[in-house]
Design a protein around this nucleic acid. Structure first.
Lengths: 156, 156
DNA sequence: GGCAAATCGTTTGACAGAAGATGATTTGTG
DNA sequence: CACAAATCATCTTCTGTCAAACGATTTGCC
Protein backbone atom coordinates (compact mmCIF):
# COMPACT_ATOMS: atom_id res chain seq x y z
CA UNK A 1 0.00 0.00 0.00
CA UNK A 2 2.82 2.31 0.90
CA UNK A 3 4.33 1.46 -2.44
CA UNK A 4 1.12 2.32 -4.24
CA UNK A 5 1.02 5.73 -2.63
CA UNK A 6 4.61 6.31 -3.44
CA UNK A 7 4.02 5.38 -7.06
CA UNK A 8 1.19 7.87 -7.31
CA UNK A 9 3.43 10.41 -5.65
CA UNK A 10 6.17 9.85 -8.17
CA UNK A 11 3.74 10.05 -11.04
CA UNK A 12 2.49 13.33 -9.67
CA UNK A 13 5.95 14.79 -9.75
CA UNK A 14 6.47 13.36 -13.20
CA UNK A 15 3.33 14.58 -14.87
CA UNK A 16 2.98 18.09 -13.61
CA UNK A 17 5.95 19.69 -15.32
CA UNK A 18 4.59 18.41 -18.62
CA UNK A 19 1.50 20.52 -18.27
CA UNK A 20 1.90 23.78 -20.07
CA UNK A 21 2.56 26.63 -17.66
CA UNK A 22 -0.46 28.38 -19.13
CA UNK A 23 -2.95 27.30 -16.55
CA UNK A 24 -0.59 26.17 -13.86
CA UNK A 25 -0.80 29.51 -12.09
CA UNK A 26 -4.52 29.23 -11.72
CA UNK A 27 -4.42 25.61 -10.71
CA UNK A 28 -1.90 26.49 -8.02
CA UNK A 29 -3.88 29.45 -6.78
CA UNK A 30 -6.86 27.19 -6.55
CA UNK A 31 -4.85 24.55 -4.77
CA UNK A 32 -3.45 27.07 -2.33
CA UNK A 33 -7.01 27.56 -1.15
CA UNK A 34 -6.69 24.08 0.29
CA UNK A 35 -3.83 25.27 2.48
CA UNK A 36 -5.95 28.14 3.72
CA UNK A 37 -8.91 25.83 4.25
CA UNK A 38 -6.92 23.30 6.22
CA UNK A 39 -5.41 25.99 8.39
CA UNK A 40 -8.81 27.54 8.93
CA UNK A 41 -10.33 24.22 9.90
CA UNK A 42 -7.59 23.63 12.43
CA UNK A 43 -7.87 27.14 13.80
CA UNK A 44 -11.62 26.75 14.15
CA UNK A 45 -11.02 23.53 16.07
CA UNK A 46 -8.92 25.50 18.50
CA UNK A 47 -11.82 27.88 18.93
CA UNK A 48 -10.76 30.93 16.92
CA UNK A 49 -11.22 30.79 13.17
CA UNK A 50 -8.93 32.73 10.88
CA UNK A 51 -11.65 35.22 10.10
CA UNK A 52 -12.29 35.89 13.77
CA UNK A 53 -8.59 36.21 14.42
CA UNK A 54 -8.14 38.71 11.64
CA UNK A 55 -11.04 40.78 12.94
CA UNK A 56 -9.62 40.86 16.46
CA UNK A 57 -6.20 41.79 15.13
CA UNK A 58 -7.57 44.63 13.10
CA UNK A 59 -9.76 45.98 15.88
CA UNK A 60 -6.82 45.82 18.24
CA UNK A 61 -4.58 47.58 15.75
CA UNK A 62 -6.79 50.33 14.42
CA UNK A 63 -9.62 50.70 16.95
CA UNK A 64 -13.39 50.42 16.49
CA UNK A 65 -14.58 49.80 12.95
CA UNK A 66 -17.80 49.23 11.08
CA UNK A 67 -18.42 45.76 9.73
CA UNK A 68 -18.23 47.27 6.28
CA UNK A 69 -14.70 48.51 6.85
CA UNK A 70 -13.69 45.20 8.36
CA UNK A 71 -15.01 43.22 5.43
CA UNK A 72 -13.36 45.48 2.88
CA UNK A 73 -9.99 45.44 4.59
CA UNK A 74 -9.97 41.76 5.33
CA UNK A 75 -11.51 40.65 2.05
CA UNK A 76 -14.33 38.88 3.84
CA UNK A 77 -17.77 39.17 2.30
CA UNK A 78 -20.21 41.44 4.18
CA UNK A 79 -22.72 38.65 4.62
CA UNK A 80 -20.05 36.39 6.06
CA UNK A 81 -18.82 39.15 8.34
CA UNK A 82 -22.23 39.13 10.02
CA UNK A 83 -21.77 35.66 11.45
CA UNK A 84 -18.10 36.23 12.21
CA UNK A 85 -19.10 39.19 14.39
CA UNK A 86 -22.04 37.26 15.80
CA UNK A 87 -19.70 34.57 17.07
CA UNK A 88 -17.19 37.04 18.44
CA UNK A 89 -19.94 38.97 20.19
CA UNK A 90 -21.46 35.85 21.67
CA UNK A 91 -18.05 34.86 23.00
CA UNK A 92 -17.77 38.32 24.51
CA UNK A 93 -14.70 39.25 22.48
CA UNK A 94 -16.31 42.26 20.80
CA UNK A 95 -19.14 44.68 21.46
CA UNK A 96 -21.48 45.96 18.79
CA UNK A 97 -22.77 49.46 19.39
CA UNK A 98 -24.58 51.64 16.95
CA UNK A 99 -22.39 54.39 15.67
CA UNK A 100 -24.09 57.56 16.98
CA UNK A 101 -22.88 59.56 13.99
CA UNK A 102 -24.28 57.06 11.49
CA UNK A 103 -26.83 54.75 12.97
CA UNK A 104 -26.83 52.52 9.92
CA UNK A 105 -23.49 51.12 10.95
CA UNK A 106 -22.08 49.48 14.03
CA UNK A 107 -18.98 50.48 15.88
CA UNK A 108 -17.45 47.10 16.53
CA UNK A 109 -15.12 47.28 19.51
CA UNK A 110 -12.72 44.74 20.94
CA UNK A 111 -13.22 43.92 24.63
CA UNK A 112 -10.67 42.99 27.27
CA UNK A 113 -11.75 39.41 26.82
CA UNK A 114 -11.04 39.76 23.12
CA UNK A 115 -7.61 41.16 23.81
CA UNK A 116 -6.81 38.26 26.10
CA UNK A 117 -8.03 35.76 23.51
CA UNK A 118 -5.91 37.49 20.90
CA UNK A 119 -2.86 37.24 23.11
CA UNK A 120 -3.54 33.54 23.66
CA UNK A 121 -3.90 32.99 19.92
CA UNK A 122 -0.59 34.72 19.24
CA UNK A 123 1.10 32.02 21.27
CA UNK A 124 -0.85 29.00 20.02
CA UNK A 125 -1.04 29.92 16.35
CA UNK A 126 2.60 29.88 15.24
CA UNK A 127 2.79 26.13 15.80
CA UNK A 128 0.32 25.14 13.16
CA UNK A 129 1.27 27.99 10.89
CA UNK A 130 4.69 26.42 10.98
CA UNK A 131 2.99 23.15 10.13
CA UNK A 132 0.98 24.53 7.22
CA UNK A 133 3.91 26.36 5.65
CA UNK A 134 6.75 24.05 6.65
CA UNK A 135 7.84 23.30 3.07
CA UNK A 136 8.90 26.92 2.77
CA UNK A 137 11.75 28.70 4.49
CA UNK A 138 10.90 31.87 6.40
CA UNK A 139 12.43 33.87 3.57
CA UNK A 140 10.29 32.10 1.00
CA UNK A 141 7.20 32.72 3.08
CA UNK A 142 7.98 36.39 3.00
CA UNK A 143 8.34 36.25 -0.77
CA UNK A 144 5.06 34.41 -1.09
CA UNK A 145 3.26 36.96 1.06
CA UNK A 146 4.75 39.78 -0.96
CA UNK A 147 3.81 38.23 -4.30
CA UNK A 148 0.25 37.40 -3.28
CA UNK A 149 -0.10 40.83 -1.75
CA UNK A 150 1.04 42.43 -4.96
CA UNK A 151 -1.27 40.24 -6.99
CA UNK A 152 -4.18 41.37 -4.84
CA UNK A 153 -3.16 44.99 -4.87
CA UNK A 154 -2.28 45.22 -1.21
CA UNK A 155 0.55 47.30 0.11
CA UNK A 156 2.34 49.86 -2.04
CA UNK B 1 -18.88 57.87 -5.37
CA UNK B 2 -15.62 57.47 -7.18
CA UNK B 3 -14.03 59.32 -4.32
CA UNK B 4 -15.57 56.94 -1.80
CA UNK B 5 -14.10 53.97 -3.58
CA UNK B 6 -10.76 55.63 -3.76
CA UNK B 7 -10.89 56.40 -0.07
CA UNK B 8 -11.64 52.80 0.71
CA UNK B 9 -8.80 51.81 -1.55
CA UNK B 10 -6.41 54.07 0.26
CA UNK B 11 -7.56 52.81 3.63
CA UNK B 12 -7.05 49.28 2.47
CA UNK B 13 -3.47 50.02 1.66
CA UNK B 14 -3.10 51.78 4.96
CA UNK B 15 -4.49 49.21 7.28
CA UNK B 16 -3.13 45.98 5.98
CA UNK B 17 0.52 46.44 6.83
CA UNK B 18 -0.49 47.05 10.40
CA UNK B 19 -1.82 43.54 10.75
CA UNK B 20 0.75 41.24 12.17
CA UNK B 21 2.28 39.01 9.54
CA UNK B 22 1.18 36.06 11.64
CA UNK B 23 -1.98 35.29 9.79
CA UNK B 24 -1.35 37.31 6.68
CA UNK B 25 -0.06 34.27 4.82
CA UNK B 26 -3.28 32.42 5.37
CA UNK B 27 -5.42 35.42 4.61
CA UNK B 28 -3.56 35.84 1.35
CA UNK B 29 -3.79 32.19 0.43
CA UNK B 30 -7.48 32.42 1.06
CA UNK B 31 -7.74 35.56 -1.00
CA UNK B 32 -5.77 34.02 -3.84
CA UNK B 33 -8.56 31.48 -4.11
CA UNK B 34 -10.71 34.37 -5.22
CA UNK B 35 -8.33 35.01 -8.11
CA UNK B 36 -8.62 31.39 -9.12
CA UNK B 37 -12.38 31.51 -8.74
CA UNK B 38 -12.74 34.60 -10.87
CA UNK B 39 -10.52 33.19 -13.57
CA UNK B 40 -12.43 29.95 -13.50
CA UNK B 41 -15.74 31.75 -13.80
CA UNK B 42 -14.51 33.64 -16.81
CA UNK B 43 -13.05 30.53 -18.39
CA UNK B 44 -16.33 28.71 -17.86
CA UNK B 45 -18.13 31.57 -19.57
CA UNK B 46 -15.94 31.01 -22.60
CA UNK B 47 -17.01 27.39 -22.60
CA UNK B 48 -14.01 25.58 -21.11
CA UNK B 49 -13.55 25.64 -17.34
CA UNK B 50 -10.10 25.47 -15.81
CA UNK B 51 -10.72 21.92 -14.61
CA UNK B 52 -11.74 20.80 -18.08
CA UNK B 53 -8.75 22.53 -19.62
CA UNK B 54 -6.36 20.85 -17.21
CA UNK B 55 -7.86 17.45 -17.97
CA UNK B 56 -7.53 17.95 -21.71
CA UNK B 57 -3.96 19.17 -21.29
CA UNK B 58 -3.03 16.17 -19.24
CA UNK B 59 -4.70 13.66 -21.53
CA UNK B 60 -3.00 15.27 -24.49
CA UNK B 61 0.35 15.18 -22.74
CA UNK B 62 0.40 11.72 -21.19
CA UNK B 63 -2.29 9.73 -22.98
CA UNK B 64 -5.36 7.91 -21.61
CA UNK B 65 -5.80 8.00 -17.84
CA UNK B 66 -8.24 6.80 -15.24
CA UNK B 67 -10.32 9.45 -13.50
CA UNK B 68 -8.50 8.47 -10.34
CA UNK B 69 -5.13 9.37 -11.83
CA UNK B 70 -6.48 12.59 -13.27
CA UNK B 71 -7.92 13.71 -9.96
CA UNK B 72 -4.73 12.89 -8.06
CA UNK B 73 -2.49 14.68 -10.50
CA UNK B 74 -4.63 17.73 -10.94
CA UNK B 75 -5.70 18.04 -7.32
CA UNK B 76 -9.35 17.85 -8.27
CA UNK B 77 -11.60 15.87 -5.99
CA UNK B 78 -12.76 12.51 -7.37
CA UNK B 79 -16.41 13.44 -7.01
CA UNK B 80 -15.82 16.68 -8.88
CA UNK B 81 -13.88 14.86 -11.58
CA UNK B 82 -17.03 12.90 -12.36
CA UNK B 83 -18.91 15.95 -13.58
CA UNK B 84 -15.85 17.45 -15.25
CA UNK B 85 -15.55 14.30 -17.35
CA UNK B 86 -19.31 14.20 -17.84
CA UNK B 87 -19.20 17.65 -19.40
CA UNK B 88 -16.18 16.87 -21.55
CA UNK B 89 -17.76 13.63 -22.73
CA UNK B 90 -21.03 15.31 -23.57
CA UNK B 91 -19.15 17.92 -25.57
CA UNK B 92 -17.40 15.11 -27.39
CA UNK B 93 -13.94 16.14 -26.21
CA UNK B 94 -13.16 12.85 -24.45
CA UNK B 95 -14.27 9.24 -24.63
CA UNK B 96 -14.83 7.04 -21.60
CA UNK B 97 -14.14 3.37 -22.17
CA UNK B 98 -13.85 0.71 -19.55
CA UNK B 99 -10.28 -0.28 -19.09
CA UNK B 100 -10.24 -3.94 -20.24
CA UNK B 101 -7.42 -4.71 -17.81
CA UNK B 102 -9.31 -3.27 -14.83
CA UNK B 103 -12.97 -2.82 -15.46
CA UNK B 104 -13.44 -0.78 -12.32
CA UNK B 105 -11.73 2.12 -13.99
CA UNK B 106 -12.32 4.10 -17.13
CA UNK B 107 -9.72 4.86 -19.72
CA UNK B 108 -10.44 8.49 -20.43
CA UNK B 109 -9.17 9.40 -23.88
CA UNK B 110 -8.99 12.73 -25.63
CA UNK B 111 -10.71 12.90 -29.02
CA UNK B 112 -9.79 14.88 -32.10
CA UNK B 113 -12.51 17.34 -31.13
CA UNK B 114 -10.86 17.67 -27.73
CA UNK B 115 -7.50 18.34 -29.30
CA UNK B 116 -8.98 21.03 -31.50
CA UNK B 117 -10.71 22.61 -28.50
CA UNK B 118 -7.45 22.52 -26.61
CA UNK B 119 -5.66 24.26 -29.45
CA UNK B 120 -8.36 26.93 -29.51
CA UNK B 121 -8.07 27.44 -25.78
CA UNK B 122 -4.31 27.86 -26.01
CA UNK B 123 -4.93 30.93 -28.13
CA UNK B 124 -7.92 32.42 -26.30
CA UNK B 125 -6.72 31.84 -22.76
CA UNK B 126 -3.58 33.99 -22.48
CA UNK B 127 -5.64 37.17 -22.74
CA UNK B 128 -7.52 36.79 -19.51
CA UNK B 129 -4.65 35.05 -17.78
CA UNK B 130 -2.82 38.26 -18.53
CA UNK B 131 -5.75 40.09 -17.02
CA UNK B 132 -5.94 38.01 -13.85
CA UNK B 133 -2.20 38.19 -13.17
CA UNK B 134 -1.44 41.59 -14.62
CA UNK B 135 -0.12 43.07 -11.36
CA UNK B 136 2.80 40.66 -11.62
CA UNK B 137 5.63 40.63 -14.08
CA UNK B 138 6.24 37.38 -15.95
CA UNK B 139 9.23 36.79 -13.73
CA UNK B 140 7.16 37.26 -10.60
CA UNK B 141 4.53 34.87 -11.93
CA UNK B 142 7.22 32.29 -12.30
CA UNK B 143 8.33 32.87 -8.72
CA UNK B 144 4.75 32.60 -7.51
CA UNK B 145 4.23 29.33 -9.36
CA UNK B 146 7.46 27.99 -7.95
CA UNK B 147 6.65 28.97 -4.39
CA UNK B 148 3.12 27.61 -4.47
CA UNK B 149 4.38 24.47 -6.13
CA UNK B 150 6.94 24.00 -3.40
CA UNK B 151 4.34 24.70 -0.73
CA UNK B 152 2.13 22.00 -2.22
CA UNK B 153 4.95 19.54 -2.69
CA UNK B 154 4.90 19.63 -6.49
CA UNK B 155 7.98 19.51 -8.65
CA UNK B 156 11.57 18.76 -7.71
C1' DG C 1 -38.00 70.87 4.23
C1' DG C 2 -38.68 66.91 0.87
C1' DC C 3 -37.55 63.43 -2.39
C1' DA C 4 -34.25 60.29 -4.92
C1' DA C 5 -30.14 57.71 -4.54
C1' DA C 6 -26.66 55.51 -1.92
C1' DT C 7 -25.03 52.88 2.20
C1' DC C 8 -25.04 49.48 6.24
C1' DG C 9 -26.28 45.27 8.18
C1' DT C 10 -29.02 41.30 7.41
C1' DT C 11 -31.48 37.41 5.22
C1' DT C 12 -32.34 34.33 1.50
C1' DG C 13 -31.25 31.34 -2.41
C1' DA C 14 -28.08 29.38 -5.77
C1' DC C 15 -23.96 27.01 -6.47
C1' DA C 16 -19.24 24.84 -6.14
C1' DG C 17 -16.26 21.96 -3.59
C1' DA C 18 -15.21 18.38 0.16
C1' DA C 19 -16.38 14.39 2.98
C1' DG C 20 -18.58 10.12 3.53
C1' DA C 21 -21.28 6.07 2.00
C1' DT C 22 -22.38 2.72 -1.79
C1' DG C 23 -21.99 -0.75 -5.56
C1' DA C 24 -19.12 -3.03 -8.83
C1' DT C 25 -14.79 -5.02 -9.56
C1' DT C 26 -10.14 -6.51 -8.60
C1' DT C 27 -6.29 -8.19 -5.72
C1' DG C 28 -4.23 -10.79 -2.11
C1' DT C 29 -4.08 -14.75 1.05
C1' DG C 30 -5.05 -19.08 2.84
C1' DC D 1 -11.33 -21.86 -5.30
C1' DA D 2 -13.20 -18.71 -1.53
C1' DC D 3 -13.25 -14.85 1.15
C1' DA D 4 -11.47 -10.46 3.05
C1' DA D 5 -9.56 -6.11 1.83
C1' DA D 6 -8.67 -2.59 -1.41
C1' DT D 7 -9.87 0.29 -5.43
C1' DC D 8 -12.68 2.95 -8.91
C1' DA D 9 -16.48 5.69 -10.12
C1' DT D 10 -20.63 7.49 -8.41
C1' DC D 11 -24.12 9.53 -5.39
C1' DT D 12 -25.65 12.05 -1.44
C1' DT D 13 -24.99 15.31 2.14
C1' DC D 14 -22.85 19.15 4.17
C1' DT D 15 -20.27 23.42 4.38
C1' DG D 16 -18.68 27.87 2.69
C1' DT D 17 -19.06 31.59 -0.75
C1' DC D 18 -21.29 34.81 -3.55
C1' DA D 19 -25.34 37.54 -5.60
C1' DA D 20 -29.54 39.68 -4.98
C1' DA D 21 -33.11 41.75 -2.25
C1' DC D 22 -34.84 44.11 1.96
C1' DG D 23 -35.52 47.56 5.86
C1' DA D 24 -33.40 51.28 8.22
C1' DT D 25 -30.76 55.25 7.76
C1' DT D 26 -28.05 58.82 5.65
C1' DT D 27 -26.59 61.95 1.88
C1' DG D 28 -27.16 64.90 -2.12
C1' DC D 29 -30.00 67.96 -4.64
C1' DC D 30 -33.86 70.92 -5.56
Amino acid sequence: MATTTRTAERARVTYFPQLAAERLDIALCRASAAVARAADARATEEGLGVGQHLVLQMLDAVGPCSQQTLSEELRIDRSVMVSVCDDLEQAGHVRRERNPRDRRSYAVTITDSGRRRLAEAQTSIPAFLEDAFHPLTPEERGQLSALLGKLLGIGS
